[in-house]
Amino acid sequence: MKTILESIDLEIHKGEIFTFIGPSGSGKTSLLRLIDLLDMPTTGTIMFDGIDTAAPNAVRLSIRRRMAMVFQKPAVLNTTVANNVAFGLKFRDIEKSEIDSRVHEALDIVGLLHLANRKAVTLSGGEMQRVAIARALVTRPEVLLLDEPTANLDPVNTELIENLIRHIHQRFHTTIILSTHDMIQGQRLADRIGVIMNGRIAQIGSLHDIFYRPHGRDIARFVGIDTILKGVVASNDGGLANIAVSNVVLEAITPCKPGTHVALFIRPEEVTIALRDGDHPKTSVRNKLAGTITKMVPFGPFLRVTLDFGSPLTALVTRRSADELSLAVGTNVIAGIKATAIHVLADNG
């Protein structure tokens, strides 16, 4: 037996959008399947609205019927779109006329009314995912679970599905629990985020917490912090500390006492780049690091510029400003980082 998830201690509140973020294979799907009562945990307790779900099948069924799940790979049955959407209601023995009107409503919400009589297997991936959402929606679930709802979709369909999720949340106040490996999606949708790493919840918090104050290296890397530096606190004046990194000293905000070994996390978009011999406008930037560009990698409309000041540091620069400064590998530059933009954690490892 392999342990897939452990030490999961988590409460999801009624009416919130909670997003699990983590790399592929970290256990997001397993966790959603447990919540939807598709699988039984080997240990531990899952409570739904105060009811212990480790109960006889009839009880589990009645709880499961208060939820609905949309899977990563939508599976449609070989019948019409409308019939696919109606399944959940048929299983609940709802009257035919009621089923028809609710299927109509759900298809209208997802914008597939015109395809009601099409064979569901002939739909595109995005349309199938919308059928899956309509099918979940039609049962009026209190909790809607979505497992990587846009993982296989193009940007246009992704936006469509995200808007749909927001719309459902606003209109029905459904509690929405979704998983994604896409940080940006988490950012767009979530009230709270739980980061899952290797089957454990590594951090729960607001988007801001996780983006700017990650609890560890793995999370930091996952949320796009490429620069992680090791240093030692040299002095600390009421929270504003001088930290020795390689052969330079950086100012940062931390309660850590002098002598503490720390890790510094710096988001690439917080680093500014200026030419070494240019004019430096007066700014509040405390830390100015002289270095040489070692690598430039395109990143959408940006360039990820890595420079070496004794340690590597990555900055996100727009292509336009890179052109204006004529940045290239070997250019000597000054990198600026605000003291408040450096996240400091005591380094135990």
Binding site: R33, D36, L38, N57, L61, R64, R65, M67, A68, M69, F71, K73, A75, L77, N78, F87, G88, F91, R92, A132, R135, A136, T139
Partner: peptide, 26 residues
């Protein structure tokens, strides 16, 4: 029949009997 189909049916609130009937139909 794809394993996803039976998961889908169960999560839509099908009893085990309803699941079996639906998979046989599929």
């Amino acid at each position: 029949i794809d394993r996803n189909i039976s998961d889908t049916l169960i999560s839509l609130g099908a009893t085990s009997f309803q699941t079996i009937v639906q998979i046989v139909k599929e």
